[in-house]
Amino acid sequence: MAEKVTFKVFRFNPEKDKKPYYQDFEVEIRKPGMMVLDGLNQIRWEMDGTLAFRRSCREGVCGSDGLNINGVNMLSCITHISDLKPPIVIQPLPSLPVVKDLVVDLTDFMNKFFLVKPYLITYSPPPDKERLQTPEERKKLDGLYECILCACCSTSCPSYWADPEYLGPSALLNSARFILDSRDEGADERFEIINDRHGVWRCHTILNCIEACPKLLNPTEAIGELKKILIKKKF
């Protein structure tokens, strides 16, 4: 007899429901190392096909399946069920509008990403071959370029919840990825955007983002680097 774990899943269908509610499902553990996503799929395919959530790669690289599980933001595809205390409460990412069940509207999150000009800006003409970059310079990008835009960090940040204008840890980390890239020439343009009450200075080092990031990145540290650079420039 296979072991069963209770999943308490947040449900909301905008076409039918006025308010969201929680629905219990008994998920059967069929193999060792089963992930929360495997459980959600089991629910979809065998118990209730109306459950909606995003998923794609199922190995923690695409960032589709950010969810709030037992109060903490994480990716459902790399979270072992056995690491969680049942009943497992699954909710959509906090503070974003809910489209349906566990699907949220990421428009605001993506807009903030677009705002920091997250692309290489160069004014000098490119060389014939690749632009050179030493391994030390390249190392600066480690911990920054791996961001998968899953929104776990920004939606776990109380400053992001409180301030609708706050860029958020992810956008700021991505701006750092370019500001610190030795090939980039657009640092000043970006500083103008992030050197703002709703930019880096809204970060009060609450540190939720570090706990939430599934790729083990450190947005607070990146934001700290940016603050240091800005203060040095000012004084």
Binding site: T122, K129, L132, P135, D181
Partner: peptide, 20 residues
């Protein structure tokens, strides 16, 4: 096409001499 991609900003790993 790889050089073009690097010019677009792709963060390739680097050799000691700075090349891809």
């Amino acid at each position: 096409i790889i050089i073009e991609l690097e010019h677009m900003g792709m963060p390739f790993s680097r050799l000691e001499n700075g090349k891809i």
